[in-house]
């Protein structure tokens, strides 16, 4: 008997993200669809960043996990739109990130490429506040708009003095 899609989603919730293994693929919100087409299981995945090197590893991991559960006929599909957003990271996923030392994304702060407000912001103090994932302090500052992977920016905390990654909002 073929397992129902709820069971398959459950299995996928145990597949870790290859770059940030504390969160799963379902926490990340990149599994867009799971369905049976006849006796073929179709899993639809959306990429996080278009150049993210983890994308092909993620597909391999999905296939390996489902084969290990006895899924014989499997097809992976890529869906580009709507584009992935950090808004899809689950509340549980955000807590796991924080506990791991990565500040989760602050929703609604994605770059929109409109510079009118940006130029004013550079001179002012209205940048979003990113609380330190270690001590909770809001006295933090951005070190770089990019970090160790495409999805992160680098910050440091002025209270506990620790550097940390921020999962940037996209």
């Amino acid at each position: 008997m073929l397992p129902d899609v709820g069971t398959v989603r459950d299995w996928l919730s145990q597949v870790p993200d290859p770059e940030i293994p504390v969160i799963s693929l379902t926490d990340l919100g990149i599994i867009r669809d799971v369905e049976w087409q006849g006796d073929t299981l179709v899993v639809t995945v959306t990429p996080t960043y278009s150049g993210c090197p983890a994308t092909s590893v993620i597909n391999l991991d999905i296939e390996a996990a489902l084969r290990a559960r006895g899924i014989g006929k499997l097809r992976l599909e890529r869906r580009l739109s709507p584009p992935w957003t950090t808004d899809w990271i689950t509340p549980e996923g955000r807590e796991k990130l924080r506990a791991y030392g990565i500040a989760p994304p602050v929703d609604g702060t994605a770059a929109d490429g409109r510079l009118a407000g940006r130029v004013a912001r550079l001179a002012g103090t209205s940048n979003p506040v990113i609380p330190c994932p270690r001590c909770g302090s809001t006295r933090t500052e951005k070190v770089s708009q990019f970090g160790s992977t495409p999805c992160k920016a680098s910050y440091r905390c002025a209270d506990c003095l620790e550097p940390f990654d921020y999962f940037k909002c996209i």
């Binding site: 278009s50 580009l80 992935w84 994605a110 510079l115 708009q145």
Partner: peptide, 16 residues
């Protein structure tokens, strides 16, 4: 739509 999100970030950085 996918690329625009990334490029918005590039533009903010290069303008800064």
């Amino acid at each position: 739509a996918k690329a625009a999100k990334e490029v918005a970030y590039h533009l903010e950085r290069s303008a800064d």
